[in-house]
């Protein structure tokens, strides 16, 4: 069995080949990795199959990737996401 890891908010999270980021985070006991843009409420996996977009996070600097669909890869830098994930563009 292959054990590798990516980083989530700076700390390593192990995963098995073929797992999504959402699955690996769940296995590591992480439930929530996004806050909503209006009320700042926590969200995580909901539909688990790419339909609901609740599990959005930042992957290697790209916001709004679906954790349930995005395959985990060794060395990936994954971050939790606040609001739209595009705060740096605000004018």
């Amino acid at each position: 069995m292959t054990e590798q890891s990516f980083t989530f908010d700076g700390r390593p999270v192990a995963f098995r080949s073929g797992q999504s980021l959402g699955a690996a985070l769940t296995a590591a006991g992480v439930r929530s990795w996004r806050t909503t843009r209006a009320d700042g409420r926590p969200r995580g996996l909901f539909c688990g199959i790419g339909v609901c977009f609740d599990c959005l996070l930042v992957v290697d600097g790209r916001p709004n990737e679906r954790a349930c669909l995005q395959p985990a890869a060794a060395g990936m830098q994954v971050e939790s996401q606040e609001g739209t994930g595009h705060g740096h563009l605000e004018v």
Binding site: R16, G18, Q19, S20, G22, A23, A24, T26, A27, R31, S32, R41, P42, R43, G44, L45, F46, C47, G48, I49, C52, C68
Partner: peptide, 21 residues
């Protein structure tokens, strides 16, 4: 129902069948 931890039955099944979690 918007709390993390509330999931669809299909999502729970997908984690299990698709990711062994």
């Amino acid at each position: 129902w918007d709390l993390p931890g509330v999931m669809t039955a299909g999502g729970v099944q997908a984690l299990l069948k698709g990711h062994a979690v």
